[in-house]
Each structure stands twice: as structure tokens, then as C-alpha cells.
Design a protein around this nucleic acid. Structure first.
Lengths: 154, 154
DNA sequence: CCTATGAGTTGTGAATCGAAACCTTGCGCG
DNA sequence: CGCGCAAGGTTTCGATTCACAACTCATAGG
């Protein structure tokens, strides 16, 4: 189930490692719901329209991977809900990036269904790349990749 | 092939629409390679270790969806390579977010295999949320969602 | 002619998905 | 007690996809 891919030197790409976690249509949607506050099994099942066996499987994996955790929300009978761990919350930039891309390139004419605002002032937020050295924003074309400390031996 | 999901009101989520494009393990890796400059069929096939029929299928979809385009790189015989369209380039924040998450939560002790730098100054870049009104950076916990113009009728 | 290269297509068994039915624990109720 | 219900799964099984290998096609080079 693991160690399936001898190609595409995994050290070369943290994206490959991230994809092992969220490289699945349902997983992304489950996480989206987790951010929206949908956390219970049945809520997720009906909201997503996912088969229950798949939902169980995906939740199990996400818990195993440390992205979600089971938290009891009642006793007798004990029932759990699935909450994002800090590691899960760290996926928010990725989810947001997908949302913004969907807004821009797959959105209707009416505008985005959801907009992200600064909780303290209520104004809209942008997701940007920042060069702290220059103190400026950088667009996609101003980005360059360079080998980091954990780069390939090849 | 389309219109498969009556649940999870698609208007509620551009993430769902984005996932129809990139909600697949291979698709994400193909795009990563496209950003890295790997653009030819055989290069992709051997670099990723993907089955050739799947690669052909994924490339076809990405082209149909306008994320990649076929560009001839030689004649006689005419051969094409797959390049990112502007729409495809707009996926970079999502790919970067995944990479940074992978670096942080799935990385080895040696540090990230790839680091992103500002092409003009060579210093490292951060991906952040910015409130232009307050002029400050906002963390994940300072983000709130609110219904946008295209929100659900429910 | 023979071989090689690049870009796919085809065929086939194995793995995964999806829908629906079933199971379990523990109420609340008559 | 016996019944029905709710939440959270598990089981079953046919339909779909995946993965791997082999094959095709066009053209170039020796």
C-alpha cells in the first residue's frame, strides 16, 4: 500500500508526498467540509453524496495520517466527530488556492459563492507570494525554483 | 461524465469544481512536472512511472479543460509538447501550497528538496494571506468565510 | 532493409468505486 | 419488555478504473 513508486524520485518533490494524502477527489472535499464545520460522519455522507464505505476509509486514512482527529462529542453512546489537527489546518492555503482558482476559471458570472475576509476587519483577503527581503509581492512568473538542502543526489 | 453529483451544491464550492480538474493523483504530478519543464509524453511517462494509457488520458483531459495546450516542437514527424496555458499557470499557488505542506509535514530532516526564490533577488519566498485594507498578513485562524455574490439559494 | 525514437492505442487481469443492505450501541417510549 | 429510531459504521457485489505489457504508426538514420 505504501512504497509503490520507484520513479519520480520522491525526494525531488514534496508535492508527491502531499498528493499521497490529498490526491483524491473525496479527500479534498472532506477537508473542505471540515473547514466549513461539517465534521460528523452522517453529515459528511449526505453533504458529499459519497458512499459510506469510502467515507469511512478516507476518514480512517486522514486520521492515521494525522490530518484529522476523532473527538468525542457525546457519551452514551460515545460518538466522535472528525476535527482538523494543526497539520490539517496547515492545508488551508492549498484549499484556498484551489477555491480561488475555481472561482476564477470555473466560476459562474455571479461571482464567487464564498469570499474570504479578514476576521478582525471584514475586508477581503488575497493569497500572494511575498519576498520578505524586497518587501514586495511576487507573481507566478517571478518565482524560481532552486535545489534546497534536501535535494536529489542524482 | 459530467453532472454526476446532485449533492454538495456545487455553487457552494469552487473547490468542488477545481477538484474535477485536479482531483487525481496523476494530474497533480503531471502539472508539477509541467511547471518543472517536463513537457513531452515520454519524459512524463518515465519520470512519473505512470501507465502510458493513463498519461494519454490525463493529458487529453487537461488539454480539453484548457489547462495545458499542445505545442509543436518539431515537424516531420510533427510532435507536440504539453505546455501550461495561463489558466494552468494560475494553478501555481495551489501546487506551491501543496509543496510547502509536504515540506513541513512530510519532509525529511534534511530540509526541503526545492526552495522557491524571488527571481530578481534570489531570496526565499513565502506564501501568505494578505489583507490589503489593514496592510497586514493574516494567518489561517484570522480568515473567515462569508457568502459571496454567487452564494447558494438554500 | 533494419533499427531506433516519440507518441500514442489496445487488450487483459487486478484493484477500486458506488449503491444498497445490514449490523451495533444505546436511548425513549408505550 | 419489545419497538422503533439515530448515529456510525461494515459487508456485499456488480460496474468502473487502473496498471502493465504488447502492439501500432510515422519518420529518420545507417
Amino acid at each position: 500500500m505504501s512504497a509503490r513508486d520507484p520513479h519520480s524520485d520522491p525526494a525531488e518533490s514534496s508535492i508527491a508526498r502531499a498528493v499521497e494524502v490529498i490526491g483524491d477527489r473525496w479527500t479534498v472535499l472532506i477537508l473542505r467540509d471540515a473547514f466549513r464545520g461539517v465534521r460528523r460522519f452522517d453529515e459528511l455522507a449526505t453533504d458529499l453524496g459519497i458512499a459510506r464505505n469510502l467515507l469511512a476509509d478516507r476518514l480512517r486514512r486522514l486520521v492515521d495520517q494525522g490530518v484529522l482527529q476523532k473527538v468525542p462529542y457525546q457519551e452514551r453512546p460515545t460518538r466522535y466527530e472528525y476535527r482538523l489537527t494543526p497539520m490539517g489546518i496547515d492545508l488551508s492555503p492549498a484549499l484556498v488556492a484551489l477555491m480561488l482558482w475555481g472561482d476564477k476559471h470555473r466560476g459562474g458570472a455571479e461571482g464567487p459563492p464564498l469570499s474570504l475576509v479578514h476576521s478582525t476587519c471584514g475586508h477581503e483577503l488575497d493569497q500572494v507570494f511575498l519576498c520578505r527581503h524586497c518587501g514586495e509581492e511576487v507573481t507566478a512568473l517571478g518565482i524560481r525554483g532552486r535545489p534546497g538542502p534536501g535535494a536529489r543526489p542524482a
